[in-house]
Design a protein around this nucleic acid. Structure first.
Lengths: 337, 337
DNA sequence: CTGTTAGCGCCTTCAC
DNA sequence: GTGAAGGCGCTAACAG
């Protein structure tokens, strides 16, 4: 428990400056007219005492905090971290500040209600609006501006920003098929994530579009992890009729696949073509550099913040779903058959 | 400006449940004895209305928020992001929640006072204590628990966690020298950062310890950036008597150095040995894999949080400076002469 | 066990 | 121009 008075409050400033609290409040908010010397006097005392108004008290009264909230379940998730960077850049551009709230716990350890709780906790007091990253529920308070990024559920009552995972995966398939590949293996991601589902859809759509029939054995379900990527690859390679190319649903799996291929004595791209997804920095340095899909997660965050600010400032939105494009990055892990 | 009543408050719950606000407050805080049926009734209303207490109001009264604050100037700094992950993990372990505050602006655009302002803003209202990453000033409010990570200034009035940059750099030098290198180039980091200064000290100490005289030409001052790393390397290589090994103050510079070496037709490690610092993921994938120093920045964050929690809970500290060890990671970018 | 009372620090009327 | 009073949503004392 903390001692009662250790922060300097507006009262202290008022007393020291010999004015009333309301006068101090006025100079703080630079509104209303104030005598120049009063202003200067107060300002000086503020500096002397190192006074700063309490966010809590202020936001309780003023209903406008100039803060944007960002709710992240789990910082261990690199996706969330990347989003955060984008949001951070955006709020800087738009003149807001950012409050990120996390629990440090594994998202799976938290009850269902945590998102709701945290949203309510921030909104209506500390922040003017909130961005929620990959919310697992639609049941969120709707009284305040709220934007979701990559929601798990298809239909959301809030504006949401999503990455064009399906389209990105499709472009991978088109590329691979244009190179002459027909037997293309797929290493799936975590089945509970929308992104993984969409990427697999893209894989299947690509096949369908080229009239190549889908071979269930060629689809392995992974978990976005490196080790699992390697395992899936081993299974794929031990097939009686192994694939000539493998599309991994994310770069980590793809790196695992690369390792498994090396173990099996296979050269990339000569003996096996390989494509990842995400364009994480490591992919530029693998041997050979990996062809992958850049999805600019950071851009997702930026756009979310931009839209939230529009919402806060009362602008009307053109749409409810905003898509951030993905883009194939061709490097050297694939070859034409 | 927001409409007056869009959040459901404790008052609403009280009215709906037919009890007083204090009763609601009691069931919220699970203290004091309450009749079971009253408890259930209130709890039910809370659920129905989806009520959540306002962080702002609560922390204004209770002086204990169970939140730890983390002040980060600039999320573009990977160091800060890594620290953040460690802090996040720690607060999860210790049962706190985390509030991160950033401005999204370039740290250089902010006045000197920003850290002070933000600390005051969080502490004394929202958080029970604060961690400040690489503070540039000692002039911080001291009324509340506060821990700094890698402060720019040598002498700090707060507990600080620092990385053993000097020792890590020294171990690099010992390694290089044990390999028979005498002409060792150094690519410095941003001179305004303590870490950079310390690493350079380690370089110089290593030389001194082995009785190798310091050659000013072999020391290039960089900025932790990849491009600058390449430039410095070009200068180093064009010396009449070029170094046989280069120690770059961070991995990004080292990767730049690798590129410059390739340009010059030099093979690593055959023609030039190279060591970086930080152990960023990319270094495991460079060609050849880079020898570097692992400094576990994440661990810095974890320890900072641990110490802050001790402080908050009134435990006494053994010391004021806490060091997190660094460790040489030997890969394949160096060879014996 | 529960209601009443008093603020936490601040901003916003409304007077003067 | 400036001060006094009221209340934002909540918890902590004190009665009952």
């Amino acid at each position: 428990m903390r001692s009662r008075k250790s922060t300097v409050t507006i009262q202290d400033v008022a007393r020291e400056a010999g004015v009333s609290v309301s006068t101090v409040s006025r100079v703080l908010n630079k509104k209303d007219y104030i005598a120049v010397d009063t202003y200067e006097k107060v300002q000086q005392v503020i500096d002397e005492l190192g006074y700063t108004s309490s966010l809590a008290a202020r936001s309780m009264r003023s209903y406008k905090t100039n803060n944007v909230g960002l709710l992240i379940g789990d910082l261990k998730n690199p996706f969330a971290v990347e989003v955060m960077k984008g949001v951070d850049r955006a709020i800087g551009d738009f003149g807001y500040e950012l409050i990120i709230h996390t629990t440090g716990k594994d998202i799976t350890d938290l009850g269902i209600g945590w998102e709701r709780r945290h949203v309510a906790q921030l909104n209506g007091s500390l922040t003017d609006g909130i961005i929620v990253v990959t919310p697992t529920t639609t049941n969120l308070p709707s009284a305040f501006p709220l934007v979701t990024i990559d929601p798990h559920v298809e239909e959301s009552s809030f504006p949401s920003i999503i990455s064009t995972n399906r389209a990105g995966a499709l472009s991978v398939m088109e590329y691979l098929i244009s190179l002459g590949h027909h037997r293309i293996g797929f290493i799936g991601g975590r089945p509970d994530l929308q992104s993984a589902i969409r990427r697999q859809q893209g894989y299947e759509d690509g096949l369908r579009q080229a009239n190549i029939s889908l071979v269930p054995d060629l689809i392995q379900s992974g978990d976005y992890g490196r080790k699992t990527g390697a395992e899936c690859t081993r299974k794929l390679l031990s097939l009686p009729n192994p694939p000539t190319a493998i599309f991994a649903a994310n770069d980590h799996s793809a790196i695992g696949a690369m390792e498994a291929a090396a173990e099996a004595g296979l050269r990339i791209p000569e003996d096996l073509s390989l494509v990842g997804f995400d364009n994480i920095p490591e992919t530029a340095f693998t041997q050979p550099p990996m062809t992958t899909v850049n999805q600019s997660i950071e851009e997702l965050g930026y756009m979310a913040a931009k839209i939230l600010v529009d919402l806060i400032e009362g602008k009307s939105l053109e749409s409810k779903i905003f898509k951030v494009p993905t883009e194939l990055v061709i490097r050297k892990s694939c070859r034409a058959l």
